[in-house]
Amino acid sequence: MAKMTLEALRALREEKKSALNKRDVEGKTAQIVVGMGTCGIAAGAKGALDGFLAAIDEYKLDNVAVTQTGCMGLCYVEPTVEVIVEGMPNVIYGKVDAEVAKKIVKDHVMHKQMVSEHVFDRPAADIFNGGGK
């Protein structure tokens, strides 16, 4: 490795700062939680995560947080992703790849329209809050 200059260090810092900002949930109106359990990773969750990050960069969204979690218990439809958007019910999408990730960002996060063919479940928290109905 060649000697890193202070300018290169500064650029790297800015790059990392932007990546960290995407993980910060504070003050964001939408949150995308990617299931990165072993089952999710084996099914390609890393591709989905990269797809979300790329789409957020492409559409220049600064109000969306992307975080990771473990297995959501829906291993049969991995990779799974929970999408939490203000004014919409929390939704778990299944079989999400980079292409679906982009569609979720565009339709669900930006235009508040669910991507019906990939909706698999609502989070357990909703079920408990609703008394199991």
């Binding site: 000697k3 890193m4 500064r10 790297l12 810092r13 990392k16 960290l20």
Partner: peptide, 25 residues
Amino acid sequence: DILGDLSMSQSLILLRDFIRSQDED
């Protein structure tokens, strides 16, 4: 000035890499 607070893990990783890169040659 570049990295911010040196107690943050992200800053520490960058500082470690920077010092290593100076030393490797």
